[in-house]
Write a protein that binds this DNA or RNA. Structure first.
Length: 265
DNA sequence: GACTCAGAAAACAACAGACT
DNA sequence: AGTCTGTTGTTTTCTGAGTC
């Protein structure tokens, strides 16, 4: 492990925050979370999309984004999908229980994806597309919403977030096909922790060890000891803890950013 | 039992060529 | 010029056999 380069990475991420759309660092130097600013403009309000996780409707969108990111495809698609959900102004818990609405939304997905891409802000590397199975996951989330919220409240009460992790990681259909969500679970915990929605969410379980982060961590420049891919929940949590020990409340952000600033090394 | 790695899987983008 | 069809490439996660 190369401590000097790790410190250099943190310094470079902070110095280049304006050039990196996902680096939301506030005036106090604290990471404000990804959903605090999508860097995608809402044409109705003219403002950049963000989520207030104190609202259940916005919490739903956070889970939706995490589910989108539990599949293959460019990460920008999930970001734009979240922005689209926000622009709908529908109550997700009734809207996405309706099979007809889901079919309608699938039908027009390529059209709305094209429209929202033109809203400006975040520059996608490729044409924005909403996978049809994104919508199936929304139904899964809506149907299971009560038990998800209950597991979070129980985790807070018993000071044990494994209760939530067990709940969300066993829910089929939040990944591709009938698969489950795994690697993006820390993302949900991270955003909830940053906005202080529940008490005592451990920071060590808030780092996302996805392929982009792992690739950066394992490169010769940092030589951080991590598995190539986290195949189980314990492996995800272990990797998350290692990342947290190095970057604390910047979480996986510096490693995620590495690819965009590697030329500066 | 934890980790590693190659390949599978999934959905779509981008492109090329054939046909109307 | 437009549309259709098939091929190849991209992106990311998941699986399962093998290794330490």
């Amino acid at each position: 492990m190369n401590k000097t380069n790790i410190e250099k990475l943190i310094m470079l991420v902070r110095a280049n925050k304006k050039a990196l759309p996902y680096v939301n660092i506030d005036s106090n130097g604290n990471y404000a979370g990804w959903v605090s600013d999508f860097h995608i403009v809402d044409k109705q309000t003219g403002k950049s999309v963000c989520l207030n996780l104190a609202c259940p409707q916005d919490r739903f969108i956070l889970f939706a984004i995490a589910s989108c990111w539990s599949r293959s495809g460019a990460w920008e698609n999930g970001a734009y999908f979240g922005a689209y959900l926000k622009s709908l102004h529908e109550d997700p818990f009734t809207y996405w229980m309706d099979k007809n609405k889901i079919a309608e939304e699938k039908e027009k997905s390529s059209k709305v994806a094209e429209q929202i891409e033109q809203n400006g802000g975040l520059k996608p590397r490729k044409k924005v597309a909403f996978r049809s199975d994104f919508y199936d996951s929304l139904e899964v989330l809506a149907k299971n919403w009560e038990s998800i919220e209950k597991s979070l409240k129980n985790s807070e009460r018993q000071n044990d977030y494994m209760i939530f992790i067990d709940c969300i990681s066993s829910m089929k259909g939040l990944g591709a096909g009938k698969r489950t969500m795994k690697i993006k679970i820390p993302l949900i915990l991270r955003e909830l922790r940053i906005q202080n929605i529940y008490e005592n969410i451990p920071g060590k379980w808030c780092c996302v060890p996805d392929s982009r982060v792992i690739k950066a961590a394992k490169s010769d420049i940092f030589a951080i000891d991590l598995p190539n891919y986290c195949t189980t929940i314990p492996a995800v949590l272990k990797a998350s803890e290692r990342i947290y020990n190095l970057f604390t409340d910047l979480y996986d952000l510096p490693l995620f950013a590495f690819k965009d600033i590697e030329d500066l090394f």
